[in-house]
């Protein structure tokens, strides 16, 4: 299983425009496995992305929109894509000009391979 995690994260990290990918424990926001470019704060990405995911997932369920599958945070200097992977969350940090469609597609593929 561990190798599967590593392979999924490494594959995602190789997508153009991706600054790194990591698998995070949804409940605690602690990293399980990561592959990040230098300068990306792993603790921060894991904790904040998981927290944002958890909060919006709870909002989605409260509003009767069901389980949250994917979150995409768009910002001036980059993007964060987080995909539900059971008890884990697959998080991708991407450059502002990354091909988000491709990033999302690869992230979904990776998340599916984990479940």
């Amino acid at each position: 299983m561990n190798e599967l995690f590593i392979a999924a994260v490494e594959r995602l990290s190789r997508v153009a425009g991706v600054r790194g990918a990591l698998l995070v424990e949804g409940e605690t926001g602690v990293t399980v496995i990561s592959d990040l470019r230098e300068g990306v704060n792993e603790t921060a990405v894991a904790a904040l992305a998981a927290s944002l995911f958890r909060r919006t997932a709870a909002a989605s369920e409260t509003a009767d929109f069901g389980r949250l599958n994917t979150l995409q945070l768009e910002a001036d200097d980059g993007h964060v894509v987080a995909v539900d992977a059971g008890e884990l969350i697959l998080v991708v940090v991407a450059e502002h000009d990354a091909q988000l469609g491709l990033v999302r597609y690869e992230a979904h593929r990776a998340a599916e391979s984990l479940s």
């Binding site: 989605s60 069901g66 994917t70 910002a75 980059g78």
Partner: peptide, 19 residues
């Protein structure tokens, strides 16, 4: 999140839910 990840100003969140 955007502030601490040094992503600048956030412009949006797209959520893909079950329904």
């Amino acid at each position: 999140t955007a502030h601490h990840l040094v992503l600048g100003v956030w412009r949006g969140i797209l959520l893909d839910s079950e329904h």
